[in-house]
Protein backbone atom coordinates (compact mmCIF):
# COMPACT_ATOMS: atom_id res chain seq x y z
CA UNK A 1 0.00 0.00 0.00
CA UNK A 2 1.32 3.49 -0.86
CA UNK A 3 2.47 6.17 1.52
CA UNK A 4 -1.03 7.32 2.45
CA UNK A 5 -2.87 4.19 1.29
CA UNK A 6 -4.14 3.25 4.76
CA UNK A 7 -5.62 6.71 5.26
CA UNK A 8 -7.30 6.57 1.86
CA UNK A 9 -8.70 3.11 2.63
CA UNK A 10 -10.04 4.37 5.96
CA UNK A 11 -11.65 7.34 4.19
CA UNK A 12 -13.32 4.94 1.79
CA UNK A 13 -14.63 2.87 4.73
CA UNK A 14 -15.95 5.98 6.49
CA UNK A 15 -17.62 7.18 3.29
CA UNK A 16 -19.26 3.77 2.75
CA UNK A 17 -20.68 3.74 6.29
CA UNK A 18 -21.84 7.36 5.99
CA UNK A 19 -23.54 6.56 2.69
CA UNK A 20 -25.39 3.54 4.12
CA UNK A 21 -26.63 5.54 7.12
CA UNK A 22 -27.48 8.58 4.97
CA UNK A 23 -29.43 6.62 2.34
CA UNK A 24 -31.36 4.71 5.01
CA UNK A 25 -32.27 7.96 6.79
CA UNK A 26 -33.19 9.98 3.71
CA UNK A 27 -35.19 7.18 2.07
CA UNK A 28 -37.04 6.39 5.30
CA UNK A 29 -35.93 2.75 5.08
CA UNK A 30 -34.34 3.16 8.50
CA UNK A 31 -37.79 2.37 9.96
CA UNK A 32 -37.42 -1.17 8.67
CA UNK A 33 -34.46 -1.59 11.02
CA UNK A 34 -35.15 0.67 13.98
CA UNK A 35 -37.96 2.10 16.08
CA UNK A 36 -38.64 5.80 15.34
CA UNK A 37 -37.33 6.88 18.75
CA UNK A 38 -33.87 5.55 17.79
CA UNK A 39 -33.68 7.49 14.51
CA UNK A 40 -32.26 10.74 15.99
CA UNK A 41 -29.27 8.74 17.24
CA UNK A 42 -28.68 7.47 13.70
CA UNK A 43 -28.69 11.08 12.46
CA UNK A 44 -26.10 11.78 15.13
CA UNK A 45 -24.03 8.82 13.91
CA UNK A 46 -24.29 9.89 10.27
CA UNK A 47 -23.21 13.45 11.13
CA UNK A 48 -20.24 12.22 13.18
CA UNK A 49 -19.18 9.87 10.38
CA UNK A 50 -19.51 12.66 7.81
CA UNK A 51 -17.35 14.85 10.07
CA UNK A 52 -14.76 12.09 10.30
CA UNK A 53 -14.79 11.81 6.47
CA UNK A 54 -14.02 15.53 6.15
CA UNK A 55 -11.28 15.27 8.75
CA UNK A 56 -9.82 12.19 7.06
CA UNK A 57 -9.71 14.11 3.76
CA UNK A 58 -7.68 16.78 5.56
CA UNK A 59 -5.39 14.08 6.96
CA UNK A 60 -4.81 12.65 3.49
CA UNK A 61 -3.93 16.07 2.05
CA UNK A 62 -1.59 16.62 5.02
CA UNK A 63 -0.04 13.19 4.48
CA UNK A 64 0.51 13.70 0.74
CA UNK A 65 2.15 17.09 1.29
CA UNK A 66 4.44 15.93 4.06
CA UNK A 67 7.19 13.35 4.15
CA UNK A 68 5.46 11.30 6.87
CA UNK A 69 4.25 7.77 6.31
CA UNK A 70 0.80 6.70 7.41
CA UNK A 71 1.82 3.47 9.08
CA UNK A 72 0.66 -0.06 8.38
CA UNK A 73 -3.00 -0.86 8.03
CA UNK A 74 -4.75 -3.59 10.00
CA UNK A 75 -6.21 -6.54 8.08
CA UNK A 76 -9.28 -6.30 10.29
CA UNK A 77 -10.16 -3.01 8.59
CA UNK A 78 -11.53 -5.06 5.69
CA UNK A 79 -14.26 -6.33 8.04
CA UNK A 80 -15.97 -2.94 7.69
CA UNK A 81 -16.87 -3.87 4.11
CA UNK A 82 -18.73 -7.06 5.06
CA UNK A 83 -22.01 -5.44 6.20
CA UNK A 84 -21.81 -3.02 3.27
CA UNK A 85 -21.68 -5.99 0.86
CA UNK A 86 -24.77 -7.47 2.49
CA UNK A 87 -26.83 -4.28 2.45
CA UNK A 88 -26.04 -3.86 -1.25
CA UNK A 89 -26.79 -7.43 -2.32
CA UNK A 90 -29.53 -8.63 0.05
CA UNK A 91 -31.81 -5.66 0.56
CA UNK A 92 -34.57 -6.38 3.11
CA UNK A 93 -38.16 -5.31 2.40
CA UNK A 94 -41.37 -5.16 4.46
CA UNK A 95 -41.95 -8.89 4.08
CA UNK A 96 -38.51 -9.73 5.50
CA UNK A 97 -39.20 -9.10 9.21
CA UNK A 98 -42.06 -11.62 9.26
CA UNK A 99 -39.81 -14.30 7.79
CA UNK A 100 -37.20 -14.06 10.55
CA UNK A 101 -36.79 -17.27 12.55
CA UNK A 102 -36.53 -17.51 16.35
CA UNK A 103 -39.05 -14.84 17.21
CA UNK A 104 -40.83 -14.74 20.53
CA UNK A 105 -44.61 -14.88 20.54
CA UNK A 106 -46.82 -12.99 22.95
CA UNK A 107 -49.92 -14.59 24.36
CA UNK A 108 -52.76 -12.37 23.24
CA UNK A 109 -55.22 -14.06 21.00
CA UNK A 110 -58.52 -13.53 19.32
CA UNK A 111 -59.60 -16.59 17.42
CA UNK A 112 -61.70 -16.77 14.30
CA UNK A 113 -63.05 -20.26 14.73
CA UNK A 114 -63.94 -22.10 11.56
CA UNK A 115 -62.66 -19.17 9.58
CA UNK A 116 -61.27 -21.43 6.87
CA UNK A 117 -64.73 -21.57 5.33
CA UNK A 118 -64.61 -17.89 4.70
CA UNK A 119 -61.11 -17.67 3.26
CA UNK A 120 -61.47 -16.44 -0.28
CA UNK A 121 -59.01 -18.54 -2.22
CA UNK A 122 -59.35 -16.49 -5.37
CA UNK A 123 -58.98 -13.05 -3.88
CA UNK A 124 -56.33 -10.70 -5.16
CA UNK A 125 -54.39 -8.64 -2.62
CA UNK A 126 -56.84 -6.17 -1.13
CA UNK A 127 -55.34 -2.78 -1.97
CA UNK A 128 -57.89 -0.93 0.11
CA UNK A 129 -56.89 -2.94 3.15
CA UNK A 130 -53.27 -2.11 2.52
CA UNK A 131 -53.98 1.59 2.52
CA UNK A 132 -56.25 1.25 5.54
CA UNK A 133 -53.28 -0.02 7.44
CA UNK A 134 -51.81 3.43 7.61
CA UNK A 135 -54.95 4.85 9.18
CA UNK A 136 -56.36 2.58 11.82
CA UNK A 137 -55.27 -1.00 11.71
CA UNK A 138 -54.42 -3.47 13.10
CA UNK A 139 -57.59 -3.40 15.12
CA UNK A 140 -60.87 -1.47 15.06
CA UNK A 141 -64.22 -2.06 16.71
CA UNK A 142 -66.47 -1.66 13.69
CA UNK A 143 -69.73 -1.07 15.55
CA UNK A 144 -68.38 2.02 17.28
CA UNK A 145 -65.53 2.98 14.98
CA UNK A 146 -63.46 3.04 18.14
CA UNK A 147 -59.84 2.14 17.83
CA UNK A 148 -57.62 0.04 19.93
CA UNK A 149 -54.33 1.81 20.25
CA UNK A 150 -52.01 -1.02 19.31
CA UNK A 151 -49.14 0.62 21.14
CA UNK A 152 -50.99 0.68 24.43
CA UNK A 153 -54.05 -1.50 24.39
CA UNK A 154 -53.97 -4.30 21.92
CA UNK A 155 -50.86 -6.10 23.03
CA UNK A 156 -50.90 -5.33 26.73
CA UNK A 157 -53.28 -6.45 29.43
CA UNK A 158 -56.09 -4.37 27.94
CA UNK A 159 -57.73 -7.35 26.28
CA UNK A 160 -57.51 -9.45 29.43
CA UNK A 161 -58.96 -6.74 31.63
CA UNK A 162 -61.78 -5.83 29.26
CA UNK A 163 -62.52 -9.30 27.99
CA UNK A 164 -66.11 -9.37 29.19
CA UNK A 165 -66.85 -5.93 27.79
CA UNK A 166 -65.49 -7.00 24.43
CA UNK A 167 -67.66 -10.12 24.28
CA UNK A 168 -69.89 -9.98 21.21
CA UNK A 169 -68.16 -6.99 19.58
CA UNK A 170 -67.14 -7.01 15.92
CA UNK A 171 -63.46 -6.52 15.27
CA UNK A 172 -61.21 -6.21 12.23
CA UNK A 173 -57.63 -7.36 12.63
CA UNK A 174 -54.81 -6.81 10.14
CA UNK A 175 -51.51 -8.65 10.21
CA UNK A 176 -49.40 -11.44 8.78
CA UNK A 177 -49.99 -15.13 9.26
CA UNK A 178 -47.76 -16.89 11.76
CA UNK A 179 -47.90 -20.41 13.14
CA UNK A 180 -45.52 -22.95 14.66
CA UNK A 181 -45.64 -26.29 16.46
CA UNK A 182 -46.48 -24.74 19.84
CA UNK A 183 -49.86 -23.48 18.59
CA UNK A 184 -53.13 -25.35 19.15
CA UNK A 185 -54.21 -27.49 16.23
CA UNK A 186 -55.44 -25.64 13.13
CA UNK A 187 -54.55 -22.32 14.63
CA UNK A 188 -52.66 -19.42 13.16
CA UNK A 189 -51.85 -15.98 14.49
CA UNK A 190 -52.85 -12.76 12.75
CA UNK A 191 -49.76 -11.01 13.90
CA UNK A 192 -47.64 -7.91 13.91
CA UNK A 193 -44.04 -7.46 14.89
CA UNK A 194 -43.44 -5.30 17.93
CA UNK A 195 -40.00 -3.76 18.30
CA UNK A 196 -38.60 -1.66 21.10
CA UNK A 197 -35.28 -0.58 19.63
CA UNK A 198 -34.46 -2.58 16.50
CA UNK A 199 -35.58 -5.50 14.34
CA UNK A 200 -33.24 -7.80 16.26
CA UNK A 201 -35.52 -7.53 19.32
CA UNK A 202 -38.78 -8.10 17.41
CA UNK A 203 -41.50 -10.12 19.07
CA UNK A 204 -44.59 -11.45 17.33
CA UNK A 205 -47.85 -10.24 18.85
CA UNK A 206 -51.38 -10.77 17.65
CA UNK A 207 -54.56 -12.81 17.53
CA UNK A 208 -55.03 -16.51 17.10
CA UNK A 209 -57.21 -17.53 14.18
CA UNK A 210 -58.50 -21.04 14.57
CA UNK A 211 -59.40 -22.67 11.28
CA UNK A 212 -60.69 -26.10 10.35
CA UNK A 213 -57.70 -26.39 8.09
CA UNK A 214 -54.67 -24.17 7.57
CA UNK A 215 -54.40 -25.08 3.91
CA UNK A 216 -55.65 -21.71 2.71
CA UNK A 217 -53.20 -19.62 4.72
CA UNK A 218 -49.48 -19.32 4.16
CA UNK A 219 -46.80 -18.28 6.60
CA UNK A 220 -46.00 -14.55 6.42
CA UNK A 221 -49.04 -13.82 4.23
CA UNK A 222 -50.79 -10.53 5.08
CA UNK A 223 -54.49 -10.85 5.84
CA UNK A 224 -57.39 -8.92 7.33
CA UNK A 225 -59.87 -10.77 9.53
CA UNK A 226 -63.27 -9.43 10.55
CA UNK A 227 -65.28 -11.32 13.15
CA UNK A 228 -67.08 -11.31 16.49
CA UNK A 229 -65.27 -11.55 19.81
CA UNK A 230 -66.07 -14.47 22.12
CA UNK A 231 -64.27 -15.52 25.29
CA UNK A 232 -62.65 -18.94 24.85
CA UNK A 233 -60.10 -21.16 26.55
CA UNK A 234 -56.81 -21.27 24.65
CA UNK A 235 -54.04 -23.76 25.53
CA UNK A 236 -50.51 -22.37 25.66
CA UNK A 237 -47.38 -24.09 26.97
CA UNK A 238 -49.37 -26.57 28.98
CA UNK A 239 -51.84 -24.12 30.56
CA UNK A 240 -55.26 -22.92 29.44
CA UNK A 241 -56.08 -19.22 29.34
CA UNK A 242 -59.47 -17.48 28.97
CA UNK A 243 -59.00 -15.04 26.12
CA UNK A 244 -61.08 -12.89 23.81
CA UNK A 245 -61.56 -14.92 20.65
CA UNK A 246 -62.63 -13.71 17.23
CA UNK A 247 -65.31 -15.98 15.81
CA UNK A 248 -67.07 -16.29 12.45
CA UNK A 249 -64.21 -14.47 10.82
CA UNK A 250 -64.05 -13.26 7.25
CA UNK A 251 -60.46 -13.40 6.00
CA UNK A 252 -59.17 -11.25 3.15
CA UNK A 253 -55.70 -11.30 1.67
CA UNK A 254 -53.94 -7.92 1.80
CA UNK A 255 -50.76 -6.22 0.73
CA UNK A 256 -47.94 -5.84 3.23
CA UNK A 257 -47.97 -2.39 4.86
CA UNK A 258 -45.67 0.47 4.00
CA UNK A 259 -42.36 0.68 5.82
CA UNK A 260 -43.81 3.28 8.21
CA UNK A 261 -46.35 0.66 9.38
CA UNK A 262 -44.14 -2.41 9.24
CA UNK A 263 -43.97 -2.61 13.04
CA UNK A 264 -45.86 -1.62 16.14
CA UNK A 265 -44.09 -0.14 19.14
CA UNK A 266 -44.69 -0.58 22.88
Amino acid sequence: MGKCGVKILWLFILMSLTAVLGVALISGNILLYLAPRMVPMVWFGAIVLAGLCVYQGYEIVHCLRSAQTAGKGRPGMLLFFVPVVFILTAVPDTSTPGSLPNQNVRLVSVTAKNAADTVREDTEPDEAAGSDAADCLPCVLEDEHAFFNPSVDLFSDYLFETAEALDGRTVTVYGFVYFDDSFPENTVLVSRLMITCCAADASIVGFHVQTETQDGLELNEWIRVTGTIRIMEIPYYGNDYDLPVLTDGLILRCDAPDIENAYIYP
Binding site: I30, L34, V42, I87, P92
Partner: peptide
Protein backbone atom coordinates in the same frame (compact mmCIF):
# COMPACT_ATOMS: atom_id res chain seq x y z
CA UNK B 1 -32.23 -10.67 3.50
CA UNK B 2 -33.21 -11.66 7.03
CA UNK B 3 -29.54 -11.85 7.99
CA UNK B 4 -28.92 -8.47 6.39
CA UNK B 5 -31.90 -7.01 8.29
CA UNK B 6 -30.74 -8.32 11.67
CA UNK B 7 -27.09 -7.41 11.04
CA UNK B 8 -27.88 -3.84 10.05
CA UNK B 9 -30.49 -3.35 12.72
CA UNK B 10 -27.80 -4.25 15.28
CA UNK B 11 -25.30 -1.93 13.58
CA UNK B 12 -27.73 0.97 13.06
CA UNK B 13 -28.61 0.74 16.72
Amino acid sequence: RGFSLVLWSILFE
